[in-house]
Design a protein around this nucleic acid. Structure first.
Lengths: 221, 221, 221, 221
DNA sequence: TATGAATGAGAATTCATTCAT
DNA sequence: TATGAATGAATTCTCATTCAT
């Protein structure tokens, strides 16, 4: 059997055990994020999360009812984080085509820099989004970007720059899909195509391709 | 804890215990495919695979060394199956744009009808393609479609129909991505967007969108 | 876990599968001897015995009722073998002190050349000689050497060479003990004393010591 | 198959479940000692060790990584115990021949009263002293008796009482051997010689014989 | 708030043994 | 006589979770 303990590279430095509830909660959450990202929901181990966070296993149960709810909390935090980032995009200030390009670039960069997000979503989907559904009432997980994207598409259409009839949801899903699949399945794809898809060159080629693909479609001829 | 035994809908009908090695192996493989697809590698249970196949748990170890190698065998079988289907596509007989459209449609349909394939790949990627790498030497997992796609793109470029400079690997990945992400993450997306993405209408809208997107990009103006 | 299959160095060369009952039985017996000697009764694996003998596992059960009886058969064979060797010693032809010396040397050499015998006996004793008891009625396991040794001691006493009052059983046990313990516990002792007890030099020193010890006791001053 | 549960005579009385780590560890260790002594390493069952100690099986793994390490801990404890006893012998205070005699008697008595020690060593040797080697760095397993024995032999030689040229290691091994073999193989020997070697009379005869043998050799007559 | 000790239910894997041919 | 297929009962070890302090 593989000993995954050696993967605990990011074990947090032993901190002075101040009795700081907020802090402990956050530390657990971030340790759990790593663990779930690396091993999925079933593969994650409460023990390792405790090790990672340099906290007692029992404390995890103090803050989170069980593994499932911990996963859910992690998932919510991940969503909140990406929503935070999206907010800062300020797409409405840009020209339609520049806005679309920026959205593609943002998506790519965000996934690239936050690969846990991808694995997390995969896990969530394996479990039929059970955890997401439960979170939905409590927190606004849905992207405000959809409306914004709709406005951008409309603005482009009116100006004659964009083709009409584009469903913002479909486009949004497609933009996510192009980055997501490439990065999430990168290791499989690299083996299958016999080339490293994560070299800087490959990465920039992918980004170009995606921009061309999306803009080639959106732009009226 | 959830009792997943109730999900054993597809328990195979108790067959006459023929002492047929090939058969037993195949039955185990197909039961394992279901199980791994439903729960991922870590979440899958050997016990349930035995139940599903109406065979003795011990027999699984008789044919497959351990869970990991069983997973690998399942993965290989899944790849072989999709490669088989691809072979029947006969894209070379079509006009370039028709060929591209057919490839998009095929991808969509295949994933739709073989959802296990998606979950399986997700699992494989969670484990960093370890299993795929190990299989790669033994079996041709890589798609022969890449070369064919290259030829199609070239033919279209020469005839002036297609734009030039398209990397077939990038395009192939993108075509897969568009279907894969939508279907694999469907449950999460459905919750987030507050609409069922799997109704017939949604499905056909998605297929149209993908065709437009890919062809809008490939076709010169 | 340790993979002991690599220890199957002495796997017999694949023989033409003649339907030779006697031969098969013998092959199994010798494979089992090795296996039991290496791993003890509990540690031995029927599977490995089958591998070792290049025969089907089922055949083992054809010839021997179960693991226990196989062990017993192995034990009996080992006893018969040492009794065979003892018979050839021809101690009665020697002078008393020469005979004693020869017995010490024989014991040492036999154990040295047949280390399986030691481990086998250890196993038998761990199981409280259950297997030996069962064999006893059927076969003459007891050494005819005891009587002979009694005669030798008496001859030596009469001639004034040996001291009197020596119980041949005690002496026999002691002679065996001195070689047995050294060889059977050699690995532990080597570690404890920090010196390799199996070098040629160590071996000859041990033999000298044992001869001196036994003769020093037996001989009248 | 034999039901060994009935051999659990020494199941410890259900103690008040004190949450005492040291205590639990010790209880497990002593239960494991019994189990390993009775069945050897391979034959021992973790389940039975749990039963014996009236503790949860899981706790065994909490304190000891696995069966192998548990065995190692047991072995170390056994060595420490005998070394403790040896320390109390105070041989240096005795006359040379009295000291030798006392060492023989001590060895006999210790093995007689701690038969687990013998089986344990047998097991350790079956496994090629793997466990002892691993312990050796950490703990002083080697007997301080060797040096002392050397001094005693020298003292006896100088006084003209003992013969010269005796290697203390050889003598020590021989003294151990004489008791060890008799006791460890007692059941086999009893069957073979057709007499019970463990009656009080047999025992005292054995002890006499060993003393005569060793002293007969050591003393310059 | 924090933690080490303890546990029951499981989960992968092993093993001797039997079945069917 | 020989063998590959099949199995039930263990057996080691794991995991989420709770107890007691």
């Amino acid at each position: 059997m593989v000993n995954y303990s050696i993967m605990l590279t990011s074990r947090l430095p032993a901190q002075p055990k101040t009795r700081d509830a907020e802090r402990s909660r956050a530390v657990i959450l971030s340790a759990a994020l790593e663990e779930f990202a690396l091993f999925g929901l079933s593969g994650a181990r409460i023990d390792r999360i405790a090790e990672r966070s340099n906290l007692n296993k029992r404390l995890i149960y103090y803050y989170f009812a069980d593994k499932d709810q911990l996963f859910q909390a992690v998932l919510e935090a991940a969503y909140e984080k990406i929503r935070e980032s999206e907010k800062k995009l300020n797409l409405q200030a840009l020209q339609p085509s520049a806005a679309i390009r920026k959205l593609v670039e943002f998506t790519w960069t965000y996934y690239l820099e936050n690969p846990e997000f991808l694995t997390l979503l995969n896990s969530a989907n394996l479990h039929k989004a059970r955890h997401i559904e439960e979170s939905f009432n409590a927190r606004a997980l849905n992207s405000p970007l959809i409306e914004l994207l709709g406005e951008i598409l409309e603005k482009g259409r009116v100006s004659g720059e964009f083709r009409g009839g584009i469903d913002p949801v479909q486009l949004y899903v497609s933009i996510a899909a192009l980055s997501y699949f490439y990065l999430s399945n990168n290791s499989t794809l690299s083996v299958i195509f016999g080339r490293d898809l994560m070299t800087p060159k490959s990465q920039s080629e992918r980004l170009s391709h995606m921009c061309e693909l999306i803009l080639g479609y959106v732009l009226r001829n």
